[in-house]
Design a protein around this nucleic acid. Structure first.
Lengths: 155, 155
DNA sequence: ATCAATATGGCAATTAGTTGTCATATTGAC
DNA sequence: GTCAATATGACAACTAATTGCCATATTGAT
């Protein structure tokens, strides 16, 4: 194995710190999510799918899985469970006979709203005494990182 | 159920966006981590534990689990696997007869270094053409959020 | 020192997550 | 249109993650 010498920039080191913090914070968010009733036994996937259907509109299982970069069958099981819970319904897909579109039911919208309120309450607590500009900048950087990774993975 | 009205601030909304992006980006990082050989079948836990042992020095299984907010037995299984791989060794713990300290072996340090290099390379790629100050600010905000959540969970 | 409450590792049981296979559907090249 | 390549959902098989339980160890209050 060749020992490649990596030249580090400040920007690169900052991104590396960011990556480390994303991974570490994910688990803390998960733990806090359980406390506030947003993360169930099914994990954060339930909320993530509700959110994608709310924002992007009806989607098929494979679409959701490809977007989230999780296995197709994980989303399939989640979708079957959500159908059973009555938070989504299966719609005929004009573009695909077999692959149904998942759409939020009114109950699903209510459940998503309820979860979002809990997250919003948490966010407002966390935001106290922090600088708005810095927070907005951080959110923007995260969105860019998100999109960069998506582009990278799609190649 | 009472419909609580939540007053939103810009800062709170920015944190909420941040939370959403952390969760979404986590899975993209995981997917990319698999590509670059940092995330194995055991998930990102392997790298996370190597990193904590490297930064914080020897730790027991319960210490690591409490810090990461993951189940104790998940870390226990990981530790047994890592011992088997020869990347850590079990040390007698002066403070606790049963609970051994986990310490990186030279091999463990090498493996961690190798993984870190791959992550650094990824980070440098992602950092190209981004503003250093903004990235550093984002990393700092993430560290603060991390610590805030930790404090919140520890109560 | 005593003892109740908590912590710990091992093991088993359970549950969640992932991968593999197959029949059918869709798409795209020609 | 034809047909090979790819996509899809169902189901099964497998693997990883989590939870439950227990025997023992530790801690802290008194």
């Amino acid at each position: 194995m060749v020992n490649q010498i990596i030249y580090r920039t400040q920007a690169g080191q900052a991104i590396e710190e960011l990556i480390v913090e994303i991974v570490a914070t994910f688990f803390l968010l998960r733990a806090q999510g359980m406390r506030i009733g947003v993360v169930s036994s099914s994990g954060e996937g339930y909320w993530s799918v509700l959110r994608l259907l709310n924002i992007k509109g009806s989607q098929t299982v494979p679409q959701l899985a490809r977007y989230r970069y999780v296995p197709r069958q994980s989303v399939q099981k989640l979708a079957n469970e959500m159908l059973n819970d009555g938070v989504i319904e299966f719609l005929n897909n004009p573009a695909h006979k077999r692959s149904k579109l998942l759409r939020l039911t009114p109950k699903g919208e209510a459940v998503f709203q309820e979860m979002s309120d809990r997250i919003a309450t948490l966010a407002e607590t966390l935001a106290e005494q922090q600088d708005t500009d810095q927070l907005q900048n951080a959110a923007n950087i995260m969105k860019q990182l998100h999109e960069q990774l998506r582009t990278m993975l799609n190649q």
